[in-house]
Design a protein around this nucleic acid. Structure first.
Length: 531
RNA sequence: GGCCCCUUAGUCUAGUGGUUAGGACGCUUGGUUCUCAGCCAAGAAUCAGGGGUUCGACUCCCCUAGGGGCUACCA
């Protein structure tokens, strides 16, 4: 069969998941490429649910897949919940079509009824394998006589409809990303079209639906390459025009085997729950098998649509690399508008139970609001009404985020990175406590610092810094010798943002309280537990 | 077993007969600094192996190896 050019037609692509599990990254990547191709070419993106496997299809899976696609921003134009001219978009609702088309094939002698029982088929395959032959249906029911068929049907013998595959010749097709293919028809057997329960098989339903839904480009995983010749024969037998095919390379795990649960999180839901940005996930997924020019890697969703092309899809399988995805996520996070970042962080903190804060800090006078200068003004009032409960905290949170700067790359790290701003029950690094706080000197220095801060009238950054440096001077210390224990006392860690901002944002009362507490607990006996 | 696909650093990739084989993540080192992150600079690391074709192969052909897929009344 020849490739039929259809360049005058509208681009119509589809993502056709079977609702038998969560939306995994491979499926999401396939959906994404379809979506990008459609948007790039002013086409239509169709979502079709392939639920012909009654035993494995579930409602939860169906809903989860839709949720995942929406989260990623892959909105479909026609689908189970958005009617279009070629619906319905759920296969279980299209059985009349599958049967009428099968009847047509039966009438034309391009398909036939097969009454072979499962046991008979098993025996046949076993015999073939014993003889060293490739196991495939031998077509024994193909020559059944008219009356014999009628008799068995009347007797209620279960049957399936099989495709009458040409015995010789070859089937060719062209793939947009891999070029030309040619399969010998002798390799293909008379596969089942309609199962004995009346449902269509995948290879059959996919062709009938793609044709009837006017799909112009079939973009899917390359695990379907071997199925394609069967489908091409079906298109031919049914008299449909052939769509263009584009087979995408598989996504593998670190050990180069097909990505699966044992490689860690494989569902889109899992990454959403881990607080990855959907736009970052989309960006990373796009790069798994496609490249723009080998140089540019950071794309907004919009830029991706503009840049995407099937021509630049790679043909080799890609290993899913979480480290690279985290980098992309960090880059996207950096570029987020402040107000959006504020909202996302607030959400994450809320989920962690850190908002509203366990203690309040009065920043009305002492804080230099110029800290956030240079950016567009934060429209805190625009933030979700649900967060009004801690609206008072939002200005301080904005400053904390600003102080954290690039240290905050992943939303899931909020507790680790800013927990001490919100609760006294923050994690203490035992080693740090031992190294920086467990000594008489540390105790007296921290007590001195606490006293100095207590007397400070304006608790703003310049005063706070000047006070500490002056004290270090007076004690004959490098300022670092005061800063390090101070940092551990206030945050429980040896790493934090600029210490003076930490002090200011913690507020005078909290700072003094923690410095005193640290001084009182030091020196800690060697075997002591953390605070 | 049969048929099919894939093979550039640890990973994602650029490359389309003549390049010092480019970029990115990660990694290492140095600089900035109160730590870390960031930023800046530098660095290590790649054409699976073997045959051809050619004046010349990462690029073309063949074989081998490795990985993957299909071979269901799963999709």
């Amino acid at each position: 069969m020849d490739l039929v050019e259809r360049q005058n037609d509208v681009v119509r692509v589809r993502f056709a998941p079977s609702p038998t599990g969560h939306l995994h990254v491979g499926g999401a990547r396939t959906a994404l490429y379809n979506y990008l191709y459609a948007r790039k070419n002013s086409g239509v993106f169709v979502l079709r649910i392939e639920d012909t496997d009654a035993a494995r299809s579930t409602r939860e899976s169906y809903e989860g897949i839709l949720r995942g696609l929406r989260w990623l921003g892959l909105e479909w134009d026609e689908g189970p919940d958005i009617d279009g001219p070629y619906g319905p978009y759920v296969q279980s609702a299209r059985s009349v079509l599958y049967h009428s088309e099968a009847d047509r094939l039966l009438r034309e002698g391009k398909a036939y009824r097969c009454f072979c029982a499962a046991a008979e088929l098993d025996a046949m395959r076993a015999a073939q394998e014993a003889r060293g032959e490739a196991p495939k249906y031998d077509g024994r029911c193909r020559s059944l006589g008219e009356t014999e068929i009628e008799e068995r049907l009347a007797a209620g013998v279960p049957s399936v409809v099989r495709f009458a595959m040409p015995r010789d010749g070859e089937t060719r097709f062209r793939d947009v990303v891999r070029g030309d293919f040619s399969f010998g028809n002798a390799e293909l057997d008379d596969f089942v079209l309609i199962k004995s329960d009346g449902r269509p098989t995948y290879n059959y339903a996919v062709v009938v639906d793609d044709a009837h839904m006017r799909i112009s480009h079939v973009i899917r995983g390359d695990d379907h390459i071997s199925n394609t010749p069967r489908q091409v024969r079906l298109y031919d037998a049914l008299g449909y025009r052939l769509p263009k095919f584009a087979h995408l390379p598989m996504i593998l795990g670190a050990d180069k085997t097909r990505l699966s649960k044992r490689h860690g999180a494989t569902s889109v839901d899992a990454y959403r729950d881990l607080h990855y940005l959907s736009e970052a996930m989309v960006n990373y997924l796009a790069l798994l098998g496609w490249s723009f020019d080998g140089k540019r890697e950071l794309f907004s969703f919009k830029a991706l649509i503009e840049a995407f092309s099937l021509k630049r899809v790679s043909s080799n399988p890609a290993v899913f690399d979480i480290a690279k995805m985290e980098w992309i996520n960090a880059e996207h996070f950096k570029m987020l508008p402040p107000a959006e970042k504020l909202e996302l962080v607030a959400e994450a903190l809320e989920e962690e139970g850190l908002l509203p804060p366990a203690f309040e800090v009065d920043l009305s006078r002492p804080v230099d609001l110029k800290l956030v200068a240079g950016k567009e003004p934060l429209r805190i009032d625009a933030i979700d009404a649900a967060k009004k409960g801690f609206a008072r905290e939002l200005p301080r949170l904005a400053l904390i985020i600003e102080a954290l700067g690039n240290r905050l790359k992943l939303l899931r790290d909020v507790r680790e990175l800013m927990g001490y701003f919100y609760t006294d029950d923050f994690a203490r690094d035992e080693t740090a406590v031992r190294n920086h706080l467990a000594s008489k000197e540390a105790a007296s220095r921290l007590e001195a610092l606490a006293r100095a801060y207590e007397d400070l009238q304006y608790f703003d950054r310049p005063s706070v810094e000047e006070t500490l440096r002056a004290l270090a001077d007076r004690l004959g210390l490098q300022s670092g010798e005061l800063i390090h224990p101070c940092r551990v006392a206030l945050t429980g860690k040896t790493v934090s943002p600029d210490i003076f901002w930490v002090i200011v944002l913690l507020g005078k009362a909290k700072t003094v309280e923690r410095l005193r507490a640290a001084a009182a607990n030091a020196p800690i006996p060697p075997a002591a537990k953390e605070g």
